[in-house]
Amino acid sequence: MSIAAVANASMNRLRVFLSAFTLILLSACATDGVVHPAPCKDSCTTHSEGYQWAMDAALVDPSPCDNKAYGPDFVRGCKDAVNDFSQLQPASKGL
């Protein structure tokens, strides 16, 4: 096999790899921007459980807290954690 044929085959593999890699990167960016954590599996009623659940999920949006299955103290703890966690984030989101 000639050097040109080897180079051509290598370039074709590189093109396929880069196309697949680009598609993977773009699909990773295609989210709604909201973290969807696994549902709470404990009693999901206390403030501390809600707070810990939200912190473990690194929630920055309180919408996952508003689940009718969770008690009001859990929801308040979850929203408190979202508020606290958002204060830990940098003020600028960049460009």
Rank of each mutant, 00 (worst) to 15 (best):
V60G: 09
M11F: 12
T46D: 04
I24D: 13
Y51R: 07
L18E: 11
A58I: 03
L14P: 00
I24H: 12
P64V: 09
F85N: 09
C40L: 02
H47A: 07
V35K: 06
Q89G: 05
A57F: 05
G77M: 08
F21L: 15
V82L: 01
L14I: 06
P90H: 12
P72G: 03
F74H: 04
D84R: 13
K41N: 03
I3S: 04
A81W: 02
D66L: 12
G94I: 06
H36P: 09
C65R: 03
G77E: 04
S63D: 13
G71R: 03
K41P: 00
A7Y: 01
C78D: 05
N83S: 14
N8I: 02
G77Q: 08
T46L: 00
C78G: 00
T46V: 08
A4I: 10
A69G: 05
Q89H: 10
R15Y: 08
A4M: 01
A28N: 14
A57D: 01
M1A: 00
A28G: 13
V34W: 06
G94N: 03
A54M: 04
C44P: 02
M1L: 00
D42H: 01
L25S: 07
D66H: 15
S2I: 00
N67C: 10
S27W: 13
S19L: 14
P37A: 08
Q89F: 07
Y70D: 03
P37D: 02
F17M: 15
P72K: 13
D73M: 09
S19V: 09
L26P: 03
L23G: 11
C40E: 01
P64Y: 07
L88D: 11
C40N: 04
L59S: 07
K93M: 08
P62E: 09
G50R: 00
T45C: 05
V16P: 00
S27L: 13
S2P: 03
P62K: 06
T22R: 15
T45W: 01
T46C: 03
A91R: 15
N83Q: 11
A81K: 06
D61F: 08
V75I: 15
Q89C: 12
I3Y: 02
A9L: 06
P90D: 15
P90K: 11
L25N: 11
S19E: 12
R76Q: 12
S2V: 00
A69V: 03
I24W: 14
P62N: 08
W53V: 01
Q52W: 01
Y70V: 06
D80Y: 02
G71D: 07
C78W: 02
A57T: 09
A28E: 12
Q89M: 15
N83Y: 14
F85A: 05
G33R: 10
Y51G: 01
F21Q: 15
S92R: 06
I3N: 00
L59Y: 07
N12E: 12
G33I: 10
G33V: 08
K41V: 11
